Simulated assay, not measured.
Amino acid sequence: MTGKKTRRVGARGLAVLAAAPLLGVVPLMGAAGGARADGPGPSGHGGQHAHKGKGRGRPAPHHKPVKHRPPVKHREPAGHKKKARSVRLHTSAPGKAVLPGRTYDWPFAVTAKGHGKAGRAVFRATLPKSLEFVSGRRDCAVSGWTVECDLGAVRPGQTVAGAIRAKVAGRARPDEAIWIPATVTWRGRRDAAEFPVARVARTADLAIAKTAPATARSGAPISYVLRVSNRGPATAEDVFVRASGPVRLLTGNAACIPEERGFVCGVGALRPGETRTLRFRVLPAGNVRAGKVLTFASRVTSSTTDPNPRNNSATVRTRITAKKAAPKKKAPKKKAYAGAPQTKRAGAK
């Protein structure tokens, strides 16, 4: 019996081996002669009898799910991007220092940017009380302290220039800062800017007055009285009086230095409202003879700016007359002697 079973198994094994090439499977023989499928299968995964451990089939790695990224939006090239609308305001000032009573221009320029059609641009500025509006370059009008200029239709990319003209008030204080805020609107856009700050210059209005005699004898000294005043608003520094004429200074109550034709005297500093009186005695030159008119001019100057130079000079004229003639001496009368005989004229009775 044992031998028959062995032959049957052997025959069955041969039948399997004979069929293996046709099926494309190579059976593995175990210890008991049966087929086993240990190890990885055709797809790389462990078989149904796979075991964990060294030298045996390992489980497939765990793959993370793939995240789906949002689609990338198509961006237009930089050259095709539309520019946003905007407007720019540029300002400038007449200078760092302005003089009271003078008129100046405050220029400005408006630039429109973007795309589309032209739009109306309006410029507005608020003047300080130290400025008085005079006129404007463009269609400008004033209401109270606000100046408004209609710049008309401005196209994108266009620059429109303008200016406001204003006078510095005479009451403006020295060193006062003139600050002008301004705005511009265009197609719903707005820009704000300030004009550069200008300051009121330190000024002093000097005035001079001079008196002299109408006539003077030839060769006699002449007295002059000169008054220098400062009408403000600032202190006048380094005040000098220059006198010119064919005279020679004899005496005076100021520090004076002779010049070629006349002399110059230092006055010093004059506060606003202050007056200084100078007195001189001069001697006309030898060529100023009787019958001539002596012209004597004076001018006051200062290192402080004087906005009104028209009252800085004074001129006086004195007519030179002849010397007073000395009285003639009378001849003494002859006295008659007593007791002398009197002679009778012929024909006297």
Results as ranks from 00 to 15, higher is better:
residue 40 P to M: 02
residue 231 R to T: 00
residue 212 A to H: 03
residue 215 T to R: 04
residue 24 G to K: 04
residue 90 H to E: 13
residue 334 K to T: 08
residue 183 T to N: 14
residue 51 H to A: 09
residue 11 A to C: 00
residue 253 N to L: 10
residue 86 S to I: 13
residue 173 R to F: 00
residue 131 L to W: 15
residue 341 P to Q: 07
residue 259 E to C: 02
residue 126 T to V: 15
residue 311 N to Q: 13
residue 27 P to E: 12
residue 7 R to S: 14
residue 275 T to V: 14
residue 262 G to I: 10
residue 264 V to A: 06
residue 119 G to I: 05
residue 27 P to W: 06
residue 20 A to N: 11
residue 140 C to Q: 09
residue 176 E to K: 03
residue 105 D to H: 11
residue 275 T to M: 14
residue 78 A to T: 14
residue 211 T to S: 15
residue 175 D to S: 15
residue 125 A to C: 11
residue 36 R to T: 10
residue 221 P to K: 13
residue 73 K to C: 01
residue 133 F to S: 06
residue 261 R to C: 00
residue 87 V to T: 05
residue 243 A to G: 03
residue 347 G to A: 05
residue 294 L to F: 04
residue 86 S to M: 13
residue 65 P to T: 15
residue 312 N to C: 11
residue 148 E to G: 07
residue 96 K to I: 02
residue 109 A to S: 15
residue 245 G to P: 12
residue 200 V to Q: 02
residue 3 G to K: 04
residue 280 F to D: 01
residue 231 R to P: 01
residue 132 E to Y: 10
residue 278 L to A: 03
residue 31 A to M: 04
residue 23 L to H: 10
residue 145 W to D: 04
residue 8 R to E: 14
residue 151 L to S: 03
residue 134 V to H: 01
residue 175 D to C: 02
residue 134 V to R: 12
residue 146 T to V: 13
residue 154 V to F: 10
residue 112 A to V: 08
residue 134 V to F: 07
residue 256 C to H: 02
residue 47 G to M: 04
residue 198 A to L: 04
residue 132 E to T: 15
residue 257 I to M: 06
residue 344 K to W: 06
residue 131 L to N: 09
residue 310 R to H: 09
residue 316 V to F: 12
residue 173 R to I: 01
residue 4 K to P: 04
residue 276 R to H: 07
residue 62 H to L: 11
residue 36 R to G: 01
residue 268 G to F: 10
residue 47 G to L: 04
residue 153 A to I: 02
residue 230 N to Y: 05
residue 25 V to S: 05
residue 42 P to I: 10
residue 27 P to A: 12
residue 236 A to S: 13
residue 109 A to N: 06
residue 224 Y to A: 05
residue 332 P to I: 08
residue 276 R to Y: 12
residue 134 V to G: 05
residue 333 K to N: 02
residue 155 R to S: 13
residue 329 K to E: 07
residue 33 G to T: 01
residue 125 A to K: 14
residue 27 P to M: 00
residue 269 A to Y: 05
residue 249 L to E: 12
residue 248 R to V: 14
residue 347 G to P: 03
residue 88 R to M: 08
residue 207 A to N: 11
residue 87 V to I: 15
residue 195 F to R: 08
residue 42 P to T: 08
residue 314 A to D: 06
residue 235 T to F: 02
residue 40 P to T: 08
